[in-house]
Amino acid sequence: MKIKRSAATIIGEVSALILTFLTHWVVFYFIIINSFKTRAEAARLSLAFPKKWQIIENYSYILSYGDGLFFRSMWNSIRLTIISIVILVLVASMTGYIMQRRQGKFSKISNKLILAGLIVPPSVISTYWILSQLGVVGTLAGLTLVEVATMFPFSVMIYKGYMATIPRDIDAAAIIDGCSASRLYFQIIFPILKPITATIVILRSVVVYNDFANPLYYMSGARNSTIQLFVYTFQSAFLTQWNYLFAAIVLISLPPFILYLILNKRILEGVTAGAVKG
């Protein structure tokens, strides 16, 4: 059975494809092609092919810049991302589970606090003061706490919505069989959360990995540099090395792209599953 589509529908679909092409693929092409140019050509910021190809030189310069600064920054960003996401998944999923299963005054207050966390912007000064009081300012541990705290409200709401699709009968049956609370969650509930967990991992990993402001505020020194701070070294108010800047962008884009290829099948499933019930 063929479904007839109106002319307006076809025009809308074509327009969406053209808009996607202009806003995404042209940008990708622009970055990649300028990473192959010399400094003078890249400074023109054009879409033209380079007159002189300088691929190996540009990428070799990035990898050897600052006595291995790229690899140190990449390692710091990967560690920060992995540790933050692991803590976030564990804490947010357990919080979402408790908030969805236990209804009462505590749940209503918790919902309001979580909602406030989504609306109220964090304060840099007060956050810095708290980290200094904890003795973790300027460290990876302190930055991890900041990343987890900023992503916590969104992740809890996503987990809570998905948790509503899991029947309570599963909990009751497990408890009747003598299952402890920890075993109930980690062996029964948490494995069911794989689709939404994959969604959280992808969406929040990109946020942590691409974060520029928090490392700039709460970290210092080349030893603690993240990959976004590394890219920033090629841009200044008076001189921007565009060929090196674009080459660095291409290299730092590879880890999120690989992560997306591995987990992309679960993204749509996880996002739409919690939309049925809230």
Rank of each mutant, 00 (worst) to 15 (best):
Ala42Met: 11
Phe212Arg: 01
Ile170Arg: 09
Phe190Arg: 11
Ile10Tyr: 12
Ser73Asp: 00
Lys52Thr: 14
Lys265Asn: 15
Asn111Lys: 09
Trp25Gln: 05
Ser205Met: 03
Tyr162His: 09
Asp67Tyr: 10
Ile78Cys: 00
Gly66His: 04
Leu251Arg: 10
Arg39Met: 05
Phe36Cys: 14
Met151Gln: 11
Pro195Cys: 05
Ile262Phe: 15
Leu63Arg: 04
Leu47Ser: 09
Asp169Met: 12
Val156Asp: 07
Gln228Leu: 09
Phe106Pro: 02
Met1Asn: 11
Gly12Phe: 06
Phe190Gln: 09
Thr95Cys: 13
Ala8Trp: 05
Trp53Val: 12
Leu145Phe: 10
Val201Phe: 08
Asp67Ile: 06
Val271Gln: 03
Ala273Tyr: 09
Tyr159Asp: 02
Ile249Gln: 06
Met1Pro: 12
Phe154Cys: 02
Ala237Cys: 08
Arg204Val: 06
Gln133Val: 11
Ile196Cys: 06
Thr197Met: 11
Met74Cys: 03
Ser107Ala: 15
Tyr244Cys: 02
Gln235Ile: 14
Tyr162Leu: 03
Leu131Asp: 06
Ala213Thr: 03
Ile18Lys: 12
Ser132Val: 06
Arg39Asn: 09
Ile252Lys: 08
Leu229Val: 09
Val86Trp: 02
Phe186Asn: 05
Leu145His: 04
Leu268Phe: 12
Leu263Gly: 06
Asn264Asp: 03
Phe30Pro: 06
Ile82Gln: 01
Ile202Asp: 00
Val148Phe: 00
Val26Leu: 14
Ile125Cys: 04
Thr197Lys: 07
Leu118Gly: 07
Phe152Ile: 04
Pro121Asn: 01
Leu239Gln: 14
Gln228Val: 14
Ile176Cys: 01
Leu90Trp: 01
Pro255Glu: 01
Phe246Arg: 06
Pro255His: 05
Asn76Glu: 06
Lys2Ile: 14
Cys179Ala: 12
Leu47Gln: 07
Glu57Pro: 10
Leu239Ile: 13
Ile56Trp: 13
Ala7Arg: 15
Ser225Cys: 05
Tyr185Lys: 13
Ile170Met: 11
Ile158Thr: 12
Lys265Pro: 09
Lys4Asp: 06
Gly161Phe: 05
Leu113Glu: 00
Ala7His: 10
Val91Glu: 00
Gln133Trp: 10
Phe106Ser: 09
Ile32His: 08
Phe49Gly: 11
Leu193Phe: 04
Leu203Arg: 04
Thr95Ala: 15
Leu69Arg: 07
Trp53Lys: 07
Ile249Leu: 15
Ser60Asp: 06
Gln228Gly: 04
Tyr232Val: 08
Ala222Glu: 12
Lys160Ala: 14
Ala247Val: 03
Val156Gly: 01
Ser93Gln: 08
Ile87Glu: 00
Gly178Lys: 07
Val250Cys: 13
Tyr232Gln: 14
Gln235Phe: 12
Ile258Ala: 13
